[in-house]
Nucleic acid binder design. Structure first.
Lengths: 259, 259
DNA sequence: TCAACTTTGTGCATGTATTCACAAGGGCCT
DNA sequence: AGGCCCTTGTGAATACATGCACAAAGTTGA
């Protein structure tokens, strides 16, 4: 019941050890079999879902794990194992029904309802996020835009008016916002985060380049440009030094990788 | 030597199995002891680095793994193990010298040189990224802005002129760009990616909501807002259904988590 | 009806990451 | 000089994730 895994690569913190320790003693049978979908799988389901949506649009009605794997940039064993956590929704010898799979994954991800999202910090990035189409698409609607700069308050971005941060509690409550995106400067991010949590937000996506802390029960994920660049820098350097050490011996570079 | 791990939580693709299979037979001794820093560790080093920078600025000269762990939002065993991959740079009974650690981590991440970065797709997001301060800070400089829209070409953003995508090869070459950020619409991202690779870019950070494929030897990482939101949605839903099933029995919510 | 073919679902082996827990090392105080 | 206290560095246990490889289950065509 806490922070979710991140970038497998970017692992966040614990999942449910505290709760798991309590449940066996207290919880009714219905809950015990914990559908426990692994974090790594949860992180891939959205990728499958996107591929399936475009397949559905292009008229494909059935797809094999192999083809879906290719579209998602992973290998087919992973696809099958991932999907098996949702149940046995495939047909041997045939594959998976695209529309049905879309339903199942959507349901599992909680996309059958539309979550209200608030964006805090309407600077360059906040603007970009507010205008980003992928939001409205499915499952989410931008319910509030919040900024500390009074001169921005009242401005309309993509059909939503900017509110002042002092009204956050009210706006969050009235909009029934449960998910918030922080796009403020690093300095105020923790304060904003605390206020969001106090207002009832239970999931936060942080774009500010700083470490945030949230109480148990609140999920926190981060997106950090400079961390990503530094990781690339690491590999870039490694490649550079390897060229010196190894020369271009390994001409085996044939397979492609994807993300 | 391929795609790096992502969001441990967000795991990307394979690391070096292909190359690893070849090296033992061919590679000179100097390379064999593979400093093999785990991907998960590499992903955390930038976080430590940021914490250390602000510690240095606030005048702290020495820090324990415990304190650093708190600042980075992880546990101290992880900090110690991570740092131990770089060498034994701590002093027992005392901790780590902040300035020295900053040097070591920077070196390891390849931040002693300044990488030239190109941003492709100067829409809302591209603009936001170009203006983002965290770039210039350390290790990176925006060397090129590239867009397909001729009406945008020539525009200056943060001191850099926008070039047309047809000039990409030249701009990349002249600027000695090795890292590129893709902030285009999904539809053209793979094409842009292919052209970047052809022009000599060897590390790519993709913001477009689509799966990209690159040849071996090119590193690829992705940042995807809608995937992040969907992961949060999953946990949000889980929390909601658990409240129904369990009631509010578990009042144990005390520990905080961070990212 | 049956055999050949396709594709799923999963047990198992392997690889990677996290965490514990403690011995070894180093500073500091008396 | 010597002992106490603190903190590192790491072996070993555990947990999590990946990928192989194949039996089971379904379809198709004769």
């Amino acid at each position: 019941m806490t922070a979710s895994a991140q970038q497998p690569q970017q692992g966040a913190t614990a999942g449910s050890p505290a709760a798991a320790a309590v449940e066996p003693a207290v919880v009714p049978a219905a809950v015990k079999p914990r559908r426990g979908i692994p974090d790594a799988t949860v992180a891939r389901l959205p990728v499958y879902l996107r591929a399936l949506h475009s397949l559905a649009e292009s008229g494909t009605s059935t797809i094999s794990s192999d083809a879906l794997a290719a579209a998602a940039g992973v290998n087919s064993a992973k696809v099958r194992k991932d999907l098996s956590y949702l149940g046995s929704y495939g047909t041997r010898g045939v594959g998976y029904d695209v529309t049905y799979l879309v339903h199942q994954i959507s349901r599992e991800l909680g996309l059958t309802q539309r979550w209200a999202v608030a964006i805090v910090g309407i600077g360059n990035l906040g603007h970009a996020l507010a205008k980003y189409g992928g939001f409205a698409t499915r499952g989410f609607r931008v319910a509030a835009l919040i900024d500390a700069d009074r001169s921005r308050v009242g401005e309309w971005v993509n059909g939503v008016a900017v509110s002042h941060v002092d009204d956050m509690a009210r706006v969050v409550r009235e909009g029934e916002v449960s998910i918030a995106v922080i796009a403020t400067p690093a300095g105020v991010a923790q304060d904003v985060c605390d206020r969001l949590v106090a207002a009832g937000v239970t999931s936060i996506l942080n774009f500010a380049p700083t470490v945030l802390t949230v109480p148990a029960g609140v999920d926190l994920r981060k997106v950090d440009l400079s961390i990503e660049l530094q990781i690339l820098s690491f590999h870039e350097q490694r490649k550079a030094s390897e060229v010196i050490a190894v020369g271009r011996l390994t001409l085996e570079g044939d397979e492609r990788v994807s993300t």
